[in-house]
Design a protein around this nucleic acid. Structure first.
Lengths: 132, 132
DNA sequence: CTGGCTGCAAATCTTTTGCATCCTG
DNA sequence: CAGGATGCAAAAGATTTGCAGCCAG
């Protein structure tokens, strides 16, 4: 939770509940996952608040928006640079830490200024491996 | 176009128009891009046909579905393994060919069977660089 | 106090689906 | 000719927005 303090957020009870749910969460939840989880303790919670909070957080760098799942956005409270190992069966996502040195020769960049990179490893988790 | 022949598709005029538009296309178009482009020559073309064709193509390995853009799916007719350099400003996507040897130690896999990987390089294209 | 936040509902956008008709193989 | 494909419209999801009332700073 420490990381969320004082990044300029007005700390309402709803936001605290969302932040509490996200803190240390390794599930890479979708907005709906977050809504469902937080609604239990906060029956009046609305989707608008979840989306508003996530968007505000994202702008402040408090959460990453993952584009890994074509069906919906997923969010990652782990904002340190890292990569992902994705199960092509059940879409479970594992964090992969460690840095990879990925050179991108000038002649391939067509004038682009390079900012960073993100690796998606694809695989099958133990459960999905069985089911095949 | 050669690559699309005889992968088991019933070749209707609409499909030929879509395939023709995709062939050699480096724009990584969305379904809407495709619909708009093909509609010009085919005023009765429907979204259903575009989506149906794309889904069928994807299943047969004729096109890749990119999850790079959070707002919508984009499609890549280049089915050879390759990576992408994405402009964070305008979302322009550049193909990056070349293979990267990316080891993933067993102890990081948690039992996952590794299938492949995809690198997203992030950057700023020349146009977007200026506008900052 | 006051501007930002909440919650509800309606709106928007992308993608999917049902179904009658059509046409490729 | 049969089964798959098309096209239309309606449906389904995910996300966004308008707005009146609320509350943290």
């Amino acid at each position: 939770m420490e990381k969320y303090k004082d990044i300029g957020l007005k700390l309402t009870p709803q936001r605290l509940a969302i932040l509490d749910y996200l803190d240390g969460n390794k599930e890479h939840p979708s907005a709906e996952d977050i809504y469902k989880a937080v609604s239990k303790r906060f029956p009046t919670m609305s989707f608008a608040t979840v989306y508003n909070t996530l968007e505000t957080l994202r702008q402040k760098g408090g959460v990453l928006e993952l584009t890994i799942d074509p069906a919906k956005k997923r969010f990652d409270p782990n904002t340190e640079p890292h990569h992902h190992l994705i199960c092509v069966g059940c879409k479970k996502i594992l964090d992969i830490h460690g840095s990879y040195r990925l050179p991108l020769p000038d002649e391939k960049r067509e004038g682009f200024e390079l900012i960073g990179n993100h690796i998606e490893f694809y695989g099958l988790c133990p459960k999905c491996k069985k089911g095949r």
